Simulated scan of single mutants.
Amino acid sequence: MAVPTSPKAGLAPRPGTASPERMLWRRRWPAWAPTAAALWGALYAAVEITWAATRTTVQWKEHSAYAPGVQLSLAALALLAGAACLAGTRPPAGPGRVAVAAALMVALPLFAVGMSGLPLYFVTLVTLSGVESATGLAQVLLNTAGAVLLLLVGLSYRRRLRGECPRCARPHTGADDGPLVHPAASRAPRRTRGAVYLLMCGLLPWAGVKTVWTLGGNVLGVSAEEWREAIGPGASGPAKAAAAVGIDITVLAALVGIFLLLGLLYVWGQVFPRWTPFLSGRRVPRLLPLVPAWLTGLPLALYGAVLSVMAPLIAVGVLPPVKPVGPFTTAQTTWMVEFGGLAFGGLGLGLVVAARSYGARTHPVCRSALEAPHPELATP
C-alpha cells in the first residue's frame, strides 16, 4: 500500500524549521548508530569495570546492589555488543551473520531489562523526592542509552539483510538519506483504542485507593491519618502539597501517562492543536511522544507483570510476604502490591500498544521509494 504524499484536508501540518544540516544528521541514523553503539559499549565497560574494581555500590533495587562479577559480565557483554554493531555495518555471510544477530538478540533484552527503574527515578526527580542512589540512576541511564542504540542498529541490520532501506524499511533504489514523505494524520483503529482503554482500567484500583486516602477516607482498613503517618517522613514538599488538595503524586504521574496515551491515539498527537501557542498546525516530531512512550512503557509493563505475579504467590505462601510498613498489615500490603501491578502493568502495556500503533501510522517513507516504486510495492 502506498503512503499518501499529501495529508488529508484540514490536517496538513506546516513544515518544520529544522536546518538542513540537522535534518541530514537525523536522516543518516542508520550510518552513525553502529559507531555510537560501539562508543557506548566502550564507555559502559569502562564504568562497570571501575565500579567493580573500587567496590562501588550500584543499587538495582531496594536494599540490593550489583555484585562485582555481574558488573564485569555486563562490561564484557557491552563490548561484545559494540563490536557486533560495527561488524553489522556490512552484513557478513554465514557464521558471521549468525554471530552478529545472536549478540544483538542477547544484549538488547538484557539492557532493556536494566532500564526498568527509569520510571521510578523519573517520578522521584519530578516530585523532588531525592535520588536514592546516584550510581543506580547512572546505571539505569547507561542501560537505557544502550537499549535504544542497540534497537536502532538491530532494525537497520535486519532491514539490510532483507534488502530494504535501513531507514524507511521499503525496498527502493537511490540514497537512503533523502527527504521523507510523512503519511496523513490519523487516529488509531477502533480495536487499538479499545484495547488501550481496557488496559487503562488497571489504574482504577490503585488510583481509587490513593484518592480515597488523600480525600480523608478509609479503605482497606487503613484510615487517611494512618496512611499519612506512614508516608509522612519520606514525602517531599510537592507530594505534600498535592495531597493537601486531594491528589496523590503517583496518581498525578499516572495522569501524565494518560495524556501521553491519548496523544498517541488521536490526531492531536501528530499535528499540534490550536491551543498550543507558536506550534499550532505544525507536525509533531515522531520521536517526541515515541521516545518517552517506549522508555516508560516497556519498564512499567515489565515491573507491573512482576508485581501482578508476586501478589498471588505471596497470598498462597509460595513467596515470603512483603514486610509491612506502618499501619499496613501483610494482607493489606499484598493487596497494594497487586493494585500496583495492575496500575503499572496496565499503563505500561497501554503505552506499548499505543506507541506501536502511533509508530506504524506515522512511519515516513523515503521520497525516492514513491518516485520510483519497487515492483514488490505494487498493490495487488
Rank of each mutant, 00 (worst) to 15 (best):
M105L: 12
V123H: 11
F122N: 08
A99Q: 09
L104R: 04
T124M: 14
C85K: 09
M115D: 14
A83G: 15
A83I: 04
A93L: 06
C85Q: 06
G117W: 12
A87S: 10
L104T: 00
G114N: 10
T89H: 14
L104I: 06
A93C: 05
V100R: 09
P95M: 03
L110R: 13
F111G: 08
G88K: 03
V100N: 05
V123E: 11
V106K: 09
P92E: 00
V126D: 07
V123P: 06
A84W: 02
T89C: 09
L108C: 14
P109C: 02
V126E: 09
V100K: 07
R97Y: 00
Y121W: 12
F111L: 12
A107E: 10
A112V: 06
V113Y: 14
V100Y: 05
G94D: 02
G94R: 08
P95V: 01
A84S: 08
L118Y: 08
T124H: 12
G94K: 02
L110T: 15
P119V: 05
G114P: 05
M105G: 11
P95L: 07
G82Y: 00
A84F: 05
P109N: 08
V100A: 04
P119Q: 07
T124D: 10
L120H: 14
F111K: 06
L80R: 09
S116N: 09
G114C: 07
L80P: 04
F111N: 08
P91L: 04
A81R: 01
L104G: 06
A93D: 15
P95D: 09
Y121C: 08
P119L: 06
L120R: 10
G94M: 06
A81D: 01
M105D: 15
A87H: 10
V126I: 15
A87N: 08
G88T: 03
S116M: 12
A107K: 03
L120I: 12
A102M: 04
S116D: 06
A81F: 00
L118G: 06
L120P: 04
A101N: 14
C85F: 03
L118P: 07
A93H: 13
V106H: 05
L86V: 00
R97G: 13
L120E: 10
V126W: 09
L118E: 02
A112T: 15
A107L: 11
A84E: 05
Y121F: 15
V100L: 02
R90W: 03
L110E: 08
L104P: 04
A93Q: 11
V100P: 09
L86N: 01
P119I: 01
P109F: 04
A112K: 07
V126F: 09
A102N: 00
L108Y: 04
V100I: 04
P109G: 05
S116G: 11
L108W: 13
L104Q: 06
C85N: 05
P119N: 07
G82K: 02
L80A: 15
F122M: 14
V106M: 13
L108Q: 15
A84R: 10
R90V: 12
L118T: 01
G82N: 00
A87G: 05
A87I: 01
G82M: 00
A103P: 07
L110M: 14
